[in-house]
Design a protein around this nucleic acid. Structure first.
Lengths: 213, 213
DNA sequence: TAGATTGTTAATCGATTAACAATC
DNA sequence: TAGATTGTTAATCGATTAACAATC
């Protein structure tokens, strides 16, 4: 394998946003777009768009711009969306159930295969056709069902142990909603969604705006 | 008001994480900590910690380090957590209800005062003691109940109009879960939580790891 | 006082923006 | 061909890290 140059996370985090805008353009039957026009819609510089895209290849054409459908598909490929991902959700409380019910994920190839919890009251409950199972069954389930990723939607006390179990079972990525940093072996990917952090950031910025009055 | 130097968002986004680590230290009765030790726990450089904190003031003491409780409280103040924030949730589907049930928010002073939806089936349903109301009632409710922030947990089609209504009613910040960028007047703060974007980032990184094998 | 560790300046690194030659 | 717009190099800007004098 060629030692490709490492793409910065700043760039990667922008890709889904490009994907979203291109998807909208596609829905509106826009066939082509220049970096300049896209930059105006997205409120970023055209230079940044071109730089970002050229990390992955030359998707445009001089004098023409970018073909919307082609670029949309190419970014989808870069993001790995041509694959299907089997996921399980560990922690079937309100948030876990909300994720299980979120249909947009399936549209992009993220298929919820299982739901797990420790709470005996929840075990056996059916959510969107999926029966909530005991976390003790995770290991077998992951191995039998080719599970790639797990969403962790449980209290922080339980998160580290469950995360380790998931990794041992063979999960490659963890979508972590627990308010704690997971330390996992190299090669296992963690993507954090810290809702309270996000809310505090909002609180900070509102406080600042008020001072500026 | 003094024209304080603008703090970069990179710094601000790190504050909640400091706050989390300091809270844990406090729970474990750790009285003082040096930037070096904290840096080892958090896996960042000690230099970055000191630089970040010194944006807001000198909270440490040479030869000693930082008093954990003091620093924890100071970061809390910076984040605006000494205030109470009344919030409403617009969109009482699975995600909205999950947020309404999340008790950690209240612990930090974010009080859910109202729940709203367009779906007649949901209106009147009671979640955690709060009756779901029609979105038509938002304007009056925001004005009467001193609502500072609104979580937007509804489909993207409905988000822009509701966001505008919220701003007109006087909301200062929007916690946006809809997969769309809101264009709101200056002074109104938007904090985005794009779950699908986050999931795609995870998908990208997993794909990369697989290539590296 | 001596040792430890901050606060802060200076150096480095990386990301963003500008500029323009290449080319459709 | 002329005009438009990319791909890419160079310049700028900002964020991170290193270093160290100040000081507890």
């Amino acid at each position: 394998m060629l030692p490709e140059k490492k793409i910065s996370t700043a760039v990667i985090k922008r890709l889904p946003r490009y994907y979203r805008y291109l998807g909208d353009l596609l829905e509106n039957d826009v066939v082509r777009i220049s970096s300049k026009e896209l930059s105006e819609r997205m409120k970023v510089t055209a230079s940044q768009i071109r730089q970002d895209l050229n990390n992955f290849g030359g998707f445009g054409q001089q004098g023409y711009g970018y073909n919307v459908e082609y670029l949309y598909k190419e970014i989808g490929k870069i993001l790995g969306l041509e694959n299907k991902y089997n996921i399980i959700i560990v922690g079937a409380g309100n948030l876990g159930q909300a994720l299980a019910n979120y249909t947009d994920f399936e549209k992009r190839g993220f298929i919820v295969k299982g739901l797990f919890d420790v709470n005996p009251r929840l075990i056996g409950v059916v959510v969107r056709g999926i029966e909530i199972k005991d976390v003790d069954e995770i290991d077998a389930f992951v191995k039998e069902n080719d599970i790639h990723m797990a969403a962790l939607t449980l209290p922080k006390q339980k998160a580290p142990k469950v995360a380790n179990d998931l990794v041992k079972a063979g999960v490659k990525g963890i979508w972590n909603f627990a308010p704690i940093d997971l330390n996992l072996p190299k090669g296992v990917v963690v993507e954090n969604v810290h809702l309270l952090d996000s809310l505090m950031t909002l609180s900070y910025t509102i406080s600042q705006e008020e001072k500026d009055q």
